[in-house]
Simulated assay, not measured.
Amino acid sequence: MVHSTSQSALGRLVERNPEMSAADLLEYFHPPAQFAHASLDNYVPDDRYPSQQEALVAVQQFAVGGTFRNGGAKSWFGKAKTSASTAERPGIYLDGGFGVGKTHLLAALWHSTPGRTYYGTFIEYTALVGALGYRGAVEHLKGADFLAIDEFELDDPGDTMVMSRLLGELVATGTRLAATSNTPPNALGEGRFAAEDFLREITALSDKFLTVRIEGEDYRKRDFDGHAVSFTADQLDRIASHSAQGVTRDSFEQVVNHLRLIHPSRFVGLVRDLAMVILDDVHVLHDQAQALRLVALVDRLYDQQVAIAASGVALDEVFDDTMLSGGYRKKYLRATSRMIALSRLVESPGA
């Protein structure tokens, strides 16, 4: 139930249904605001983990079109390559855990690459294909000098084959690639589908990239600790009454239902110009389709640093145990950490 206090002054997420052209969608294919100033000069490797310095060197070499000379460079399937063979690979793949600086390096590479460039998450690229159709996506991306793909993850056979084919066509016309993931390349698709049945497609993707492993501790670990901030209905009323423009208020259930009516490629338009979303009566999700749509929404909220104020179940407990132990576990953990961080952007209204 949505409470009425100051509701007339607030917008509603469920009343937003953005229409976005291909040009509108591609306009958002750039690094999120927190990486707007990322550069190779302001990436600070942790001396305790030499692979971070090695990764920086590898990215610097890739940025100028050079070969990879550091010993950490391997193919996706672990075989060391010579400098001559690595020079032929049009892509670099940064493999490591959460918060070791992969996205910083990817954004820095995007900023330092001249020409026509695009930056998006894996989900955004597959959503773009869904919105424009395969051929439409190829036509709009063809001729790009560089594609950056963050959070590379193969969730189903369709995505595997589509991305393999798409990247193959783009590379054939001279596009260079860079990707990040916290999933080792030979484990992409593990737990989600019979990966061995799609080895040809996975291998076709792997042949386009050189892997650079980055070790280290998660510098954002504080965002994973503890729980998301949760408010009472009265506290949300007070938050709403002191809110300026750019704030929406809806019931969690209504938002979850609304997301199924909007293509994920347009979620970026759904949250455009928002400063905060208020969600009443959050509850645990048991439907995987609903959960994955929420993950996609949270990614867009996080990119725009839109705060979340919520009542009911804490946001870090919204995915049930079955989901957290299944094939999409890493997606849900990423979304959980981001919801914790976004909930902490809300100033407490007091008791």
Rank of each mutant, 00 (worst) to 15 (best):
E253Q: 09
Q254W: 10
Q254S: 12
V255M: 03
V255I: 04
N257C: 05
N257W: 07
H258F: 10
H258I: 06
H258V: 00
H258M: 04
P264R: 12
P264K: 13
P264N: 08
P264G: 11
S265K: 02
R266I: 11
F267P: 09
G269H: 08
G269A: 11
L270V: 10
V271C: 05
V271D: 03
R272T: 11
L274K: 08
L274R: 13
A275I: 09
A275H: 15
M276L: 14
V277M: 13
V277Y: 11
L279H: 11
D280R: 10
D281V: 02
V282G: 05
V282I: 02
V282Y: 07
V284I: 14
V284D: 04
L285K: 09
H286K: 12
H286C: 04
Q288H: 00
Q288V: 05
A289T: 04
Q290R: 15
A291P: 06
L292G: 02
R293C: 01
L294T: 01
V295F: 13
V295G: 00
A296G: 14
A296H: 12
L297G: 00
V298K: 11
V298G: 12
R300I: 07
Y302H: 08
Y302T: 03
Y302W: 02
D303N: 06
D303M: 05
Q304K: 11
A307D: 03
I308H: 09
A309Y: 04
S311Q: 09
G312Y: 08
G312S: 05
A314H: 09
L315H: 03
L315E: 01
D316L: 03
E317K: 13
V318E: 02
F319K: 02
F319E: 07
F319R: 03
F319Y: 12
D320H: 12
D321P: 00
D321F: 09
D321V: 06
T322R: 11
T322E: 10
M323T: 01
S325W: 03
S325A: 11
G326S: 15
G327H: 06
G327M: 03
Y328I: 01
Y328G: 08
R329W: 00
R329G: 03
K330A: 08
K330R: 15
K330I: 10
K331F: 05
K331L: 12
K331A: 11
L333I: 13
R334W: 03
T336S: 12
T336P: 00
S337L: 04
R338E: 11
R338Y: 00
R338V: 08
I340A: 07
I340C: 08
I340R: 15
A341Q: 12
S343K: 07
R344Q: 06
R344F: 02
R344M: 04
L345C: 03
V346Q: 07
